[in-house]
Design a protein around this nucleic acid. Structure first.
Lengths: 221, 221
DNA sequence: CAACGGAATATTGTCGACATATTAAAATAA
DNA sequence: TTATTTTAATATGTCGACAATATTCCGTTG
């Protein structure tokens, strides 16, 4: 029963957020307030409010008197995010092991099973990497019951991570190993072993990062 | 040679930021836009822009059609921040060990020496805890050379940490041990031992957290 | 007297217009 | 022609006013 009142700025934020994440508004491109306001049929005030929130979750950057532009993506920035995620989600797993509820454990195990079925059925194909993986991490973070951690990972960094996945988006060949790693993390959390849960989660994310580093290196660029 | 153009919203943000951090505007209190705008002699538009940035660094919270209020402080929230810092600054120390420059090492050692002198001279008194400690952590984070980590710790969380220190602000008895812990961290970083640097930094922050937990427990509340 | 409902008040959200800074274009000088 | 300065055009920052929502106050009803 949270605050559901929706304002124009809210809708504009949602619209622009998905447009940016999905690349409809190109990464690195400048945002023209008059043009966008006209196109979306809203006032510049509402648009500017929305842009401010986009800046808060690092989807755009603003300079005084110059304006806003969509964040530009780079290998280096992506790897930086992975370092942050390794630290933050490692801690989230540790705290989840301490604070998770019985219902949440059940939900997590069901989610894991669902993902397993989907990956097996699709022979390791895209769905898992596209949204399932983020789902899993999302649930673990929620189970930490640390509001600040949740806010950082599920509000501030979440959209940016989706943006990279969407636009840099080769689907990794790690679907099966990643699934195993997920199940180990869940086991440690269910056992209440925070130390182990953190270790396993960190290793999982570190492997993802190294996998990306490798792919980026073999690609030109 | 960064963007130094200063706008009204910038000044208002700075003003409100320090006012909130120092408790001049009470924690938990509501922010009235008409009143504040009149008092600061700016338009509501500029004020709202500033409030949006305050929200981005968690100094105020906003609800649609209801308004903004200064964040309320609590023991639980403070401990949550310490968990986040343990994870993030631990990673920062690890990365600093890998990426720090020779000049930065020298500066860090000089900072450490200065703090040692000050604490010895003041017999473990307040200066160190008030700003010196944050200074030290600030420098380590900068030396990680991870822009996202720097932004999270030195922009997003920085003011909130200052606010807690300012308002919850008993000066800990840990000045001397904390100083030792700092020097160990610096040694590990200077040795390029990221694993050790992270471990030491995490232990350091965890001890601070436990110290606070204890003091909070012995205090009523 | 308490609880409920409605009018009056105040606050936030949104808008269009103006002020100021930046960028693009035109004009001049080398 | 190229470079530099001046001028025009465009974009962002700021403002005051209006609309929509929330809060307060007050009278009614049980």
């Amino acid at each position: 029963m949270t605050n559901n009142k929706t304002t124009i700025a809210d809708r504009v934020f949602d619209t622009l957020c998905t447009a940016i994440v999905e690349g409809e508004i190109a990464a690195g491109s400048k945002i023209s307030e008059p043009e966008l306001a006209k196109r979306l049929e809203v006032s510049r005030a509402s648009l500017r409010e929305a842009i401010g929130r986009l800046e808060a979750c690092s989807l755009v950057t603003r300079k005084a008197n110059i304006g806003a532009r969509v964040v530009s993506l780079s290998k280096e920035k992506l790897l930086e995010i992975y370092h942050v995620r390794e630290a933050l989600e490692g801690m989230a797993a540790r705290l989840a092991a301490q604070n998770i509820t019985a219902e949440e454990i059940t939900q997590l195990q069901q989610l894991l099973k669902r993902h397993t079925d989907e990956v097996n059925q699709a022979d390791g194909a895209s769905y898992f990497q596209r949204s399932g993986d983020l789902d899993f991490h999302y649930h673990i973070v929620q189970s930490s019951h640390n509001e600040r951690l949740i806010s950082l990972l599920c509000n501030d960094l979440y959209h940016l991570m989706r943006m990279y996945r969407y636009q840099f988006g080769r689907v990794s060949q790690r679907a099966f190993p990643a699934l195993d790693e997920h199940s180990y993390v869940v086991s440690a959390i269910a056992d209440g072993d925070g130390e182990m849960a953190e270790l396993l989660m960190r290793n999982h994310i570190r492997r993802s990062r190294r996998n990306i580093e490798q792919m980026m290196a073999t690609d030109q660029e």
